[in-house]
């Protein structure tokens, strides 16, 4: 089951904090939605530092989808 973290519209550092909470709960696969580049960079940096593989894609309305997978 993929865990969804919808962090669109949230102030710094809530996107990172909510992603971290999901990681700390032991989720293996997390989808994070953010609406600005700062949150994109911060969430990516957090996930990589925790040893996750990160893939990102930009939606048409300018939001970002960040897929985080625990590397085998």
């Amino acid at each position: 089951m993929k865990k969804l973290v919808d962090a669109r519209g949230l102030s710094c550092p809530l996107p990172v904090l909510k992603t971290k909470e999901a990681i700390d709960k032991g989720e293996q696969e997390i989808e994070v939605l953010v609406d600005n580049n700062t949150a994109l960079e911060n969430v990516t940096r957090l996930a990589q530092s925790k040893g996750f593989k990160v893939t990102t894609s930009k939606s048409t309305d300018g939001d970002w989808q960040i897929l985080i997978n625990r590397e085998k």
Binding site: C12, P13, V16, L17, K20, N42, L46, S49
Partner: peptide
């Protein structure tokens, strides 16, 4: 961000 530096270190060691 000057508050962000200390905040991020406290939260995630970033």
């Amino acid at each position: 961000c000057l508050s962000g530096g200390i905040r991020d270190f406290a939260l995630t060691k970033d």
